[in-house]
Amino acid sequence: MDTRRLAHHEFPILGRAYFLGGRASTSVKQVLREAGVDDAAIRRIAVACYEAEMNVVLHARSGYMAVDIYPDRVTIAVIDKGPGIENVDLAMTPGWSSATDEARALGFGAGMGLPNIREQADAMDIRTAKGDGVQLFLTFKREVTDDGAPPTGDSGTRG
């Protein structure tokens, strides 16, 4: 595993600020593009980040999304101050949701958030306890060229 960190960014997320939901993920997409991360990885990361961001917006008081870019991978941490998840196994079950009607009115809260995130990420670790917020850690592998170096600039790869 390559330990050289190429970039680090953090983006705040405000709980209940529905109209801002998705802005942090849009910013993440932007910095990944600028860093030359391949399009296929960006697409997976954007979907996972958006789901995770909406989880914070819908359930927590506040939080942030941290992005670390390495030559061979991108790691995302989504940390929130909120009610936490009492039963993670249950929350990982497609269709299970604790979302409010408000969340559903925004097109979320169908119980697909965490399962969707797990589907997109190469590795996922969730640490939480009731009343203690949620710390979500995701790893996404980047496309690496034959010589072992990550592509520079926009690779133009379509996945």
Binding site: F19, R43, V47, M54, L106, G107, F108
Partner: peptide, 22 residues
């Protein structure tokens, strides 16, 4: 929108009753 995020494909059209920023 979780369904769109999970199953929607690049280059396609989205028909929806959700008239929000999301």
């Amino acid at each position: 929108m979780s369904d769109v995020l999970a199953f929607g494909r690049e280059g396609s059209l989205l028909i929806t009753g959700l008239a929000t920023d999301q």
